[in-house]
């Protein structure tokens, strides 16, 4: 775990503090214009950027590249992830995603039938939210340069300014909602990749979240939201709290987690709060209509297990009341866990 500061390391892509450091040091420091028309730009490190086009409307746009191993996994494949990932980043800005741009880099020798499955899967995912794939690019490269494929997708949505939800809008007293069980995607991928053999039990949650956002916005006010992908909810909750300069108090008992996810993470020593989700949202909502928002989400296809898991405080830390009693600080993961118990 000793990093060489001159080289990019795997931990720089792990979604933790080390990656955040690289982004601000190397990327933010070297880009001169980072936003358009006063919209949400690069500096905000939000899920998507916005470009105001008139007094009322904004374009919401984002891009994401996907390099999952294995390409096909229980609950999904790289096609579904690369569609859902980008659609979700638009959705958690509070805006309906309209379209995807799709760039695929494929290694020489890739199975045609696999490629077809992947494209179909992308398309099905887009159909769920009514989004179109409107432009794209394909490249094929040497099989010794790339194992499998990389898909980069950019997304676009157009919405009203007043509906835009940033990461940073949490207010003290807001309730925190999570739209379903945590850790499903990360544990499923890990288990499949490492051959731990829990394919029948562990399934990725990869899915488009727009339906839940739409339902929530109809009945209440969302003050902030994120999709807790890399770094899990530990990362997403801390990021939201930090950006708003607030803290949270969570109740462990109310955080939904599937028993099989809990068991496998228990056996591997992996914190399920720190692994990726691909079909969930964490959001802050006004306390007075939190119950309504929760019920609306629970009625949607992917939101059955949604829960209010805590509330926003002025304490500057994300603190969880644990089931056994006592409080635990939820910290953003740095990279891999380092043993600390004496």
């Amino acid at each position: 775990m000793a990093y060489n500061d001159d080289k990019i390391n795997m931990v720089h892509g792990a979604g933790g503090e080390v990656m955040q450091g690289m982004i601000s040091d190397i990327i933010l420091n070297n880009v001169s214009k980072t936003s358009v028309n006063g919209g949400i730009g690069l500096e905000a490190l939000d899920d998507s950027a916005t470009i105001p086009i008139d007094d009322e409307h904004v374009i919401v746009t984002t891009i994401d590249s996907h390099t999952v191993q294995p390409l096909f996994f229980p609950g999904g494949d790289i096609g579904r992830i690369s569609a859902a990932g980008t659609l979700n980043d638009i959705s958690v800005m509070g805006v309906k995603p309209l379209s995807l741009n799709n760039a695929m880099v494929i290694s020489e020798g890739f199975e045609r039938s696999d490629l077809e499955k992947i494209v179909k899967s992308m398309d099905e995912t887009c159909q769920e939210v009514g989004a179109a794939i409107i432009t794209g690019d394909t490249k094929v490269i040497d099989s010794d340069k790339l194992d499998g494929m990389i898909i980069a997708t950019a997304g676009i949505g157009v919405g009203k300014k007043e509906n835009i939800v940033s990461d940073a809008g949490l207010k003290v007293g807001n309730k925190v909602i999570i739209t379903g069980s945590v850790g499903d995607h990360g544990m499923a991928i890990m288990s499949k990749r490492e051959g731990f053999g829990y394919e029948t039990e562990l399934k990725s949650d990869v899915a488009p979240v727009w339906g839940m956002v739409e339902a929530a916005q109809k009945v209440g006010t969302i003050t902030a939201m994120k999709d807790p992908t890399r770094g899990g909810i530990a990362n997403a909750l801390n990021e939201m709290a930090n950006k708003a300069n607030v803290g949270m108090r969570l109740d462990e008992e109310r955080i939904p987690i599937k028993p099989e996810v809990e068991a496998v993470s228990d056996m591997l020593g992996i914190d399920p709060f720190e692994v990726a989700n691909e079909g969930k949202i964490v959001m802050g909502v006004e306390a007075e209509n939190a119950e309504d928002v929760l019920q609306a989400i629970q009625k949607t296809k992917y939101g059955k297990d949604a829960q209010i898991i805590g509330e926003v405080t002025d304490k500057k830390h994300v603190i969880m009341e644990t089931i056994i009693g006592g409080e635990r600080l939820i910290e953003p993961p740095i990279a891999d866990p380092v043993p600390r118990v004496c």
Partner: peptide, 10 residues
């Protein structure tokens, strides 16, 4: 090796 990190302590 400490398989599972702190789990090996517990």
């Amino acid at each position: 090796p400490m398989p599972g990190g702190d789990l090996s302590t517990k």
